[in-house]
Design a protein around this nucleic acid. Structure first.
Lengths: 188, 188
DNA sequence: CATTGCAGAGAACGCTCGTTCTCTGACCTT
DNA sequence: AAGGTCAGAGAACGAGCGTTCTCTGCAATG
């Protein structure tokens, strides 16, 4: 029998992959069981309901996103470079075969109207990203109003890339961000 | 007994409202029947399956969006004003009580992974909007690369306003658009 | 070695939903 | 006025899902 932590991780990462690819409601618990190789009894011992599993998946995605952004930002030297690095991170992500848009936006569209806990988790993830951008904007010495503008570009790039299938959305967002950053720095 | 066109319109607008508020899969055909006041037999005579109804709803939304944008743009005098009018239109929309994000993005997140026809309808609506923006950019005499940047801002504003619940996303997008337009005109 | 307990597989249950069918009553025709 | 046609209400059906239960087999303990 496998370790509890291993089982939990297998279930969450399997559910993440399936929910992301097909939508939450389109994936049954049986499919999670089969692909994760963990019995239903075990899954329900770890996560009392499907909603709990969804929340665990969102937490998992949040961690992945946070470390991805942190790594990308850490690779840049200047504050402006750190801001632009976010869009380079997006460009890489958009080119992955499994890319199907922002999981948080997707799940918000699917379940946000019915589950307040899911809506809250999505809201918190987006707010956290905005805080992160605001921090980098301040470090760059640019005016505060730049931060929500850059965040908007990042969000728009994710949905556009998902729907059109064109990863070049990241390039457009990066170019727009570059222009906005320059203007903001020139004004201040 | 009511007219066929009236029945069709009642069903589509009811389904639109319900699907938009709660998600497609969360709304049963019984709920559409009850709220529209049209019998199931009639509904299935007009739309052979729920998928067909979803597509009809998307067409309906496309029409609403197109006329909304057209009206907003028509109210502005200069080409630049027409571009900014798009964001004023968004600002008004975001303040509606029923606002819950872009219906196309929501339905894409929920069903795009499973239904190619739905994905295609969403893709086409977004592409049509991008063409519209590109047209206005050309009329304004700005370089072509501006268009996808402005479209990104509009998309990002829609998702951000939906998730955060803050209609001010439209204001941020408008300000960013204004900056980008000025820079693009100065460069050309 | 016999026994107890526990984990896994998957059958079972209750519910919901998309779709179809049936019955009833009203209207139209002659 | 009688008979036929058609629309509406909602029951019915079959499938799928989340969740629980049962049975089987294995492993640990005395």
């Amino acid at each position: 029998m496998i370790d509890e932590e291993t089982a939990r991780e297998r279930v969450v990462s399997t559910a993440d992959r399936l929910f992301y690819a097909h939508g939450v409601q389109a994936v049954g618990m049986d499919a999670v069981r089969t692909e994760a190789g963990v019995s239903l009894k075990r899954i329900y011992a770890l996560f009392p309901s499907k909603d709990d599993l969804v929340l665990a998946v969102l937490r998992h995605r949040t961690d992945l996103w946070d470390t991805g952004i942190a790594d990308a930002v850490a690779g840049a030297a200047t504050p402006c470079g750190k801001l632009l690095a976010i869009f380079d991170f997006l460009a890489t992500w958009f080119r992955e075969d499994s890319f199907r848009g922002c999981a948080f936006i997707n799940v918000f569209g699917e379940l946000g109207g019915g589950s307040e806990t899911v809506a809250e988790a999505v809201r918190e993830q987006k707010a956290s990203f905005q805080r992160r951008v605001a921090e980098l904007v301040r470090e760059a010495g640019a005016p505060d109003h730049l931060a929500p503008q850059l965040a908007l570009l990042a969000e728009g790039a994710q949905t556009t890339a998902a729907i059109s299938g064109d990863p070049e959305a990241a390039g457009h967002a990066r170019a727009a961000a570059d222009t906005l950053i320059r203007c903001a720095l020139a004004d201040s």
